[in-house]
Design a protein around this nucleic acid. Structure first.
Length: 755
DNA sequence: GGGGGCTATGGGGGG
DNA sequence: CATAGCCCCC
C-alpha cells in the first residue's frame, strides 16, 4: 500500500480503519448498530479505487437499491465519477441485470418476465385448482412458501421428491402433493419465460454452476472484489452464488462480509445466521473486525438494546457501547386503545418538535405490521404534520398500474401467462371464465403458453373470434414495439387502444378519477424514463424501449421512490423496513403480545428470538429520543382485542426507562383469544394413469392419423378420434376418465404410436 | 358470459 | 376488516 495520507482515513477509528485498508483476502466485519458500518463499506470501496482497482471490478451487494445509490454518491465524493461504475445494488437487481444478458444460455429469453408475489400466488392457485386439490388444505401461501424455501436451499423438484425431510413435512401437514405443484410451477414459469424473485437468484446460480460458454470465468475475472452488506440476512442460495464468484483456482478470495447476527430479521425468507458461521469455516484465514462502538445513540438506548438482546439464546460475543450520555430516558406510554395511541403519538410529536427543536424528518414511527399505519396517518393529518408512509401497497402494486403493466409485459413477452390472464378480459370484451379455463386446459395438455393456445383451442365461434380480436390487439402493440417505438409512445398507445383509459374516464366516482390519475402518473414516469439522458445503465446506455423501461421498474420498491418536493416528513414504516436507518426521535408502537411479538411467532422460541432481534433493530434506530407505546385494546381483524403488554418491555433495564406503569404488576385481561381455526379437510384423489416411462419412445407427430391408438406420457393410452386442418388432434384417453377427450397440438405432442 | 350480492376465509415482515 | 369466490339471475 502506498503511504499516501488519504484524508478519509482520518475520519475513521482504529478498527474501522483497519477494516477499510484490509483489501485482500476474506474479511468479516461484525458491526453493531450505529457503529459506522456504512462508512466502512463506503470508504473501503473508495480506498480500493484509490489503490488502483477498477470500479467495475467491485461487486457490492447491499440490502436496498437506495442504500446502494447513497453509497455510490458518497464514494463519488471521494474518488469522482468512476464510482458510478461500481457494481452496487441488491442481489436481485444486479443478478437480473446479468441475466438480461445471459439468460438465453440457460434456456430463458433475455427479455424474461419477472413474476412478482401476486403472479406467483395466482399461478400456484391455478395449479392447485387444476390438480383438483382442496385449496383449504393446499393454501396457496403455504405452498408458495414451500416452493420458495426449496429454491432458496437449492432443492430442485426432482431433489424434492427424494428429500425425505421435505416429503415428511408435507405429509405431516397433509399436503403430500406439494412436490407435484412445485414441479408444475417450475414448468409453467419456464413456459411463460418468467422468473420469480427466487429465480433471479436460482437461475444466476445455475448460470454460474452450469457454466455455459465459460460464462462463469467471465464474471470471476470481472469481480475481483466482492463485498456483502447485511450478510446475516442472506440465505443459503445467495451464499452459494457468492462462492461461485469467489472460489476458483488461484483466487485471492477477496470477499468482505459485513453483518450483525443480532440484527438478523429475515429468516422468513430463508435468511440464516448459519452463513456467518459457515463463512468462518469456509475461510479459516479470514480477518475479523468487530465494530462495537456505537456513535448513534445515547447510553440509555444502547443499554436498553444490550439488555433486551441478552435474552436471546445464541449470539456472537460482542457488546456495543457508547460514550454519548443522554438526558432522556426511554419513555413508555400506555393507552387505552389503538386510536388513543395514534392521538398520543401525534401530540407527542408536536411537543417534541417544540421542546427539542426537531424537524419532521428527524422523527419516525415504527410498527410491526403495515396495517397499523392507518391510525397514525389519520392523527398526523389532523395535526397538519407532513408524513410519508413507506411500504405497504406500493405504487406499482396498485390494480390499475398492474393492469397497464400487464399489457406492457404481454407486448414484450406474449408467453407471460399471468399478464395474459390479468388483461384478457379487462376491459370486458366477452372472454369469460369458461373460455379462459378451456385455454388453460388446452395449454396444459399441450405444454404451451396461453398465448400459443389461442389459434388452436376449440371454442364457440363467438369466443374464437373474440379471442382473435384480442390477439390482434396485442399484435398491434407488438408491431409498434418491433418498429422501434419508444417506451412512452408505446405506453400511450397501449393505455388508449386497450380501452383502459376510456373505461376509467367513464367512471366518475372518486375511485375512478384516482385510478386515472395514477395511470397518468405512470405515463409521466415512462416519459421521464424516455427523456432522461443520464446514463444509468452503463451496459445499455440509451435504450428507450418498452423492454428497457419494464426492466428498470421490475425491482423498484416503494423505498426507492424519491419525492424531492416533500423531504421534511415524518417517516412511517415497518420495523423491518427501518433497518439501516436512523432518526433523532423514534416511536416504536403497538408493543403488545400477539402483535410485537407477532402471534405467528409465539409458538416457537426461535421465532420469538427473531422478534426480539427485530425489537432490537427498532430501538437502535433512535439517536436521542425513544418512545415506546402500547394499547390495552385494539381493533385487529375486525374485532376488538385485548392484548397484554409486550414481553420485551420487561426486558428493558428499569434504570433506562421512564415509566409511570409498574411493569411487574401486569394487568390481567384474561386468556388471550384463540386465533385461527384450522380444520384440514381431505384432498381429492388424483386418478392413476398407467404409463411405462422406460419404454416410452415418442413417434414423429407427422405420422399420426385418425383412428390410431397412441400413448401419452401424462394421459396414458388413447385413441385418436379426429385431426383437424391445423393438426390439432382430438384424442380419447379412457384412463383419465370415461369419455375424456383432450385436444392436443401435434406440432408439440409427444405421442407414441401403438398400432 | 356478465354482474350483483352474499358468505367464507384469512389475517407478517419484503426483493 | 378486506377480498375471493360462489350463487343466482339476466
Amino acid at each position: 500500500m502506498q503511504e499516501v495520507a488519504h484524508s478519509y482515513l482520518n475520519e475513521l477509528n482504529d478498527i474501522q480503519r483497519q477494516a477499510v485498508v484490509q483489501m485482500d483476502g476474506p474479511v468479516m466485519v461484525i458491526a453493531g448498530p450505529g457503529s459506522g458500518k456504512t462508512r466502512v463499506l463506503t470508504y473501503k470501496i473508495a480506498h480500493m479505487i484509490n489503490e488502483g482497482v477498477a470500479p467495475w471490478q467491485i461487486l457490492s451487494l447491499t440490502f436496498t437499491n437506495k442504500a446502494a445509490r447513497e453509497m455510490k454518491a458518497r464514494i463519488e465524493k471521494v474518488v469522482g465519477s468512476g464510482a458510478r461504475k461500481v457494481w452496487a445494488g441488491t442481489f436481485h437487481s444486479l443478478f437480473a441485470r446479468i441475466l438480461r444478458v445471459e439468460a438465453h444460455k440457460i434456456g430463458y429469453p433475455n427479455d424474461f418476465t419477472i413474476y412478482d408475489t401476486d403472479d406467483t400466488k395466482s399461478l400456484v392457485t391455478e395449479i392447485i385448482k387444476s390438480m383438483d386439490l382442496d385449496k383449504k388444505v393446499y393454501s396457496p401461501n403455504a405452498v408458495k412458501a414451500r416452493i420458495s424455501a426449496s429454491k432458496s436451499n437449492l432443492i430442485t423438484p426432482k431433489a424434492y421428491v427424494k428429500n425425505e425431510d421435505m416429503m415428511a413435512y408435507d405429509r405431516m401437514n397433509r399436503r403430500p402433493m406439494t412436490f407435484k405443484i412445485y414441479e408444475k410451477y417450475v414448468d409453467r414459469c419456464k413456459r411463460a419465460g418468467a422468473m420469480d424473485f427466487d429465480d433471479l437468484l436460482l437461475q444466476m446460480f445455475r448460470l454460474l454452476y452450469e457454466n455455459p460458454d465459460n460464462v462463469r470465468d467471465k464474471y470471476q475475472r470481472q469481480f475481483q472484489y466482492v463485498l456483502v452488506d447485511e450478510f446475516q440476512d442472506t440465505n443459503f442460495l445467495q451464499y452459494q452464488i457468492l462462492k461461485q464468484f469467489v472460489n476458483y483456482k488461484g483466487s485471492a478470495h477477496n470477499i468482505c462480509i459485513v453483518g450483525d447476527d443480532a440484527q438478523s430479521i429475515y429468516s422468513f425468507r430463508g435468511a440464516t445466521i448459519e452463513n456467518i458461521l459457515q463463512f468462518e469455516t469456509d475461510y479459516p484465514d479470514l480477518k475479523t473486525f468487530k465494530l462495537e462502538q456505537n456513535y448513534r445513540s445515547t447510553h440509555h438506548i444502547v443499554e436498553a438494546a444490550n439488555g433486551v438482546i441478552s435474552y436471546n439464546q445464541r449470539q456472537i460475543e460482542k457488546k456495543i457501547w457508547t460514550d454519548r450520555v443522554g438526558e432522556d430516558k426511554i419513555k413508555l406510554i400506555k393507552t387505552l386503545s389503538d386510536t388513543e395511541e395514534g392521538k398520543r403519538v401525534a401530540d407527542m410529536i408536536i411537543e417534541q418538535k417544540h421542546r427539542h427543536n426537531l424537524a419532521n424528518q428527524d422523527i419516525a414511527i415504527l410498527y410491526r405490521t403495515n396495517g397499523q399505519s392507518r391510525i397514525f396517518e389519520e392523527y398526523l393529518r389532523r395535526q397538519n404534520i407532513n408524513y410519508r408512509i413507506y411500504g405497504g401497497l406500493s405504487f406499482y402494486q396498485r390494480k390499475e398500474i398492474k393492469d397497464i403493466l400487464a399489457y406492457m409485459r404481454l407486448t414484450i413477452n406474449p408467453q407471460d401467462d399471468e399478464a395474459l390472464k390479468r388483461v384478457i378480459n379487462y376491459p370486458k370484451r366477452g372472454i369469460g371464465k369458461s373460455t379462459v379455463d378451456k385455454m388453460i386446459a388446452f395449454a396444459n395438455d399441450n405444454e404451451v403458453s396461453l398465448w400459443q393456445s389461442i389459434p388452436n383451442v376449440q371454442l364457440s365461434k363467438r369466443a374464437t373470434s373474440l379471442l382473435a380480436e384480442f390477439a390482434a390487439l396485442v399484435a398491434t402493440f407488438r408491431k409498434k414495439a418491433a418498429e422501434g417505438a419508444n417506451a412512452y409512445d408505446l405506453s400511450l398507445f397501449i393505455a388508449k387502444k386497450s380501452g383502459v383509459t376510456a373505461l376509467l374516464k367513464a367512471d366518475n366516482t372518486m375511485e375512478g378519477l384516482n385510478r386515472l390519475e395514477n395511470i397518468n402518473s405512470l405515463l409521466d414516469g415512462v416519459k421521464e424514463f424516455v427523456e432522461n439522458d443520464e446514463i444509468l445503465d452503463e451496459e445499455n446506455p440509451l435504450d428507450k424501449s418498452l423492454t428497457a423501461y419494464l426492466q428498470s421498474i421490475a425491482l423498484i420498491t416503494d423505498f426507492d421512490a424519491n419525492d424531492p418536493e416533500n423531504t421534511d416528513v415524518v417517516t412511517l414504516m415497518s420495523t423491518h423496513a427501518a433497518k439501516g436507518l436512523e432518526f433523532k426521535s423514534v416511536f416504536v408502537v403497538g408493543l403488545e403480545e400477539n402483535l410485537f411479538p407477532s402471534y405467528m411467532a409465539l409458538s416457537s422460541p426461535d421465532q420469538i428470538d427473531e422478534e426480539r432481534r427485530l425489537f432490537y433493530v427498532a430501538i437502535t434506530r433512535a439517536e436521542e429520543h425513544l418512545t415506546l407505546t402500547y394499547a390495552n385494546s385494539r381493533y385487529q381483524y375486525g374485532q376488538m382485542r385485548f392484548n397484554d403488554p409486550s414481553r420485551f418491555l420487561e426486558e428493558i433495564p428499569p434504570e433506562n426507562l421512564d415509566s409511570m406503569i409498574p411493569l411487574k404488576k401486569k394487568l390481567d385481561f384474561g386468556e388471550p383469544k384463540v386465533l385461527g381455526n384450522f380444520q384440514p379437510s381431505r384432498m381429492k384423489q388424483l386418478s392413476k394413469v398407467d404409463v411405462d416411462h422406460k419404454n416410452f419412445r415418442p413417434d414423429d407427430p407427422a405420422k399420426i392419423e385418425a383412428g390410431m391408438r397412441v400413448m401419452h406420457l401424462k394421459f396414458g393410452e388413447g385413441k385418436v378420434v379426429d385431426i383437424d386442418e391445423r393438426r390439432v388432434a382430438t384424442i380419447e384417453f379412457p384412463q383419465v376418465s370415461v369419455n375424456s377427450q383432450k385436444r392436443i397440438m401435434l406440432q408439440y405432442a409427444k405421442l407414441q404410436i401403438l398400432d
